[in-house]
Design a binder for these strands. Sequence first.
DNA 1: CGCCCCCACTGTAGCGCTATAGAAACCGCT
DNA 2: AGCGGTTTCTATAGCGCTACAGTGGGGGCG
Lengths: 349, 349
Amino acid sequence: MTLKTVAERVGVSSMTVSNAFSRPDQLSAALREKILAVAAELGYAGPDPAARTLARGATGTVGILLSPSLRYAFTDEFAAVFLIAITEELARSGLALTLLPPEGTGTVVPTRDVAMDGAIVYSCRLDADGLEQLHRRQLPLVHVDQPYDADAISVNVDDAAGARAAAQHLADVGHRHVGLLVVGHDDDPARAERSTQAERIRGWHDALDPAGVRTTIVAASAYDEDDGADAVRALLAAPDRPTALLCFSDARAAAAIRVAQEAGLSVPDDLSVVGFDDSPLARHTDPPLTTVRQDASAKGRLAAAALVEAIARRRTGATPEVSHVVLPTELVVRQSTAKPPAAKPPAGR
Amino acid sequence: MTLKTVAERVGVSSMTVSNAFSRPDQLSAALREKILAVAAELGYAGPDPAARTLARGATGTVGILLSPSLRYAFTDEFAAVFLIAITEELARSGLALTLLPPEGTGTVVPTRDVAMDGAIVYSCRLDADGLEQLHRRQLPLVHVDQPYDADAISVNVDDAAGARAAAQHLADVGHRHVGLLVVGHDDDPARAERSTQAERIRGWHDALDPAGVRTTIVAASAYDEDDGADAVRALLAAPDRPTALLCFSDARAAAAIRVAQEAGLSVPDDLSVVGFDDSPLARHTDPPLTTVRQDASAKGRLAAAALVEAIARRRTGATPEVSHVVLPTELVVRQSTAKPPAAKPPAGR
DNA sequence: CGCCCCCACTGTAGCGCTATAGAAACCGCT
DNA sequence: AGCGGTTTCTATAGCGCTACAGTGGGGGCG
C-alpha cells in the first residue's frame, strides 16, 4: 500500500499522488479529489512519514533531553509548565516533541538513533552521554538552564540576581544565620561552576556575605524527598539553628515548611522560608511562600522559538546565529518570611 | 558525510561500515575498531536515523496522544507520574516517547506525519481528529482511560468501583446531600457514556441513590481553575448546601477545600471533601485528603509494556492479540471526611 | 495565425541505509 | 588433499517518497 498503488489505480504518476497529498497547488482540484477518494477507498493513510523524512530531510520532530532522568525533571510541577510552553510553541510550527531518555539500552540509544530536526537540552549534566551524541550529530541545539557556552544557543534565567534578591530580603529583615538548602552534590567544581544551582548559591552568598550573615549549607538528594526532609530536620534540631532557610526550589521549600511545622516551629515567626521558581505550589502552601519568580512559560516558549528558528536557518542554508537569552527574576514576598524571632533591630536599610 | 564516505576512506564496502555500527558481530573486532576510528576522525556520528528508519521499518519512537490538549493533560501532577512511568518502561526497550499535539497547523499534522512505531491514546475524545489519523495509519495502539472498545488494546482503571467506595463512605458516615464536582460537559451522551468521568459519576450514583442521598452536580471548566472555584463558592453559598463534596480529581478537591475554608467552613467538620487519584498532593492538603487511589505508575508501565508487545508482535508477523487491563482502585480515608455537622445518627451499616 | 508562457502532469534520480544472498578465505578434521 | 562448516566481507536491490527538470497542450496576445 504505497503511493504507487494508488497511482496505478487512478492511472496517474506516483508523483501526482504525492502532490495530491503534499502540494495541492500542483494539480487540479478535480484530480486531487479523485485521488484522495481512491486513497481513502484503498485505506491508504497518506505518505509514509519515514520515507518522506528521508526524501525531504525533515522529520517534524524535535527532541528534548532532560537529565539526569525524566523522573527528576518531572517531579516538579514547574517542569510541567515549561514543557507545556515548549509543546505549544512547537505546535505552531507543526512540530512534535520527543522525550529522550538520556541513556540507551546498549544497542538502542535514542539521542543517537531517533530522527529529529533539532533538540532542546534542559538542565542536563554537561558530561552526559546523550548530550555528546546530540552534538556529534550536529543537530541544531538550544541549551536551557545550562552552564554558559558561547557557541550554543541558550535560554537562561538570571538565577544569581534572583537568589541575591531573596537573600538580601532576609538580611534586610534582620536574619543573621541562614540555612541554604540545595540538592545533590556537584563534586566536580568545574562543571558546577555555572550550573543553575551554583548560580543560586553564588547569588545567596553575594548578598549574605557582605552583610556578615552566617550560612549553613545542607545538601539533600535530588531524587529522594525524604532525604531532604531528614536533612532539614537535623538542621532545625541543632542548638544553633538558622532563623531562615533559602531553598533551591519551591517544592523543597514546601517540604521544609512541613518539617518545621512538624517540629513545632512556626513559619514565619520561628523560621523564615524562601523558595525559588514561584511554581503554582507557592501560592498554596501555608503560609504562602516568599519566593523568586521565574517565568517558566516564557522560558519554554523562547527556547522552542529559538530552536524553530535555528532549524529554519539551517534548512535555508543561512549562517547559523547564536543567541543568548537571559530571563529576569523577581522576588515575590508572601507570608513565609518575617523578621527573626529574637528580634534584633533590622540591619539598617 | 555518509556511510559510503567512511567506507571509501577505509577501503571497505559500505555494508561493512553499516555492520560496524549496527551489527558488531558481523565483522572482526580489529576492522570494526579501525572503521569506528576513521568515522570519529571524519566526524561521522553514525547511521542517519531517518534512512535507517526507512530501511529497517522501525523508528525507535512511539507517540502519545493527549487530548484535548497537552496543557490539560499536564496540569495535574498525576499525569506527570503516569508519563514518567511510560517513559521509563519504554526506555527499557530503547524507545523514546513523542508528545503529539492533537491538532496540526493545517499543513503539518503530527498524528499523521510523524514517524512512529505505535502510540498510546490517553484520555482523549473519541472523535478527535488525531485519533482517527492514528487508526487510519494502522499503527499498534493502546488506549488508556478511554471508553471501552473491544478491538483496542486497553488499560483502564476501575473508576466506577472507586467512586462507589468513596460515595458509600460518605453515605455510611451519614451524609444526606452530596455535591458532585466534575469538569467540562460532555454534551454527547453516547460518547460520554463510558468516559472516565461518566464512570465515576455512575459509581457515585450507584452508592448514593440506593441510600437515598440527594446529589447536586456542579460542572466546572476543565481548563480554568478559577471557574471551578466560583462554582464551588456558589454551591456552598446556597441555603441548602451539601454537607460533602465528591470531586473528579485531587486537584479539584484541593481547590474546593481552599474555597470552603475561605468561605469560613471547616473541613471536615462543616464539609467533607473527597478527591480522586491519590496524587502526591493528597497527602499535603490541610487536612489531608480522603481520596480514591489509583496507581498511575502501574497504569503507565502496563500501557507501555502492552504497546511494546504489540509492536513486537507486528514485527514478527504474529497475530495481534487484544488485551484489556482494568486496574483496581482503593479508598484512602484521611482527614477531609467526617460525619455531617448537624449529626444525624449515621445511616445504619 | 503564430508565438510564447503557463498550467497540469510525468520520469528519473536520488535521500542513506540495511536485508539478503553469496563469494572468499580459513578452519579443523578425516 | 579434500570436505563441510564457519567466519568475514561484498554486491545488489530495494525501503517509499520527493526534488527537479522536463513535456505537452491550451490559452492569451500581438
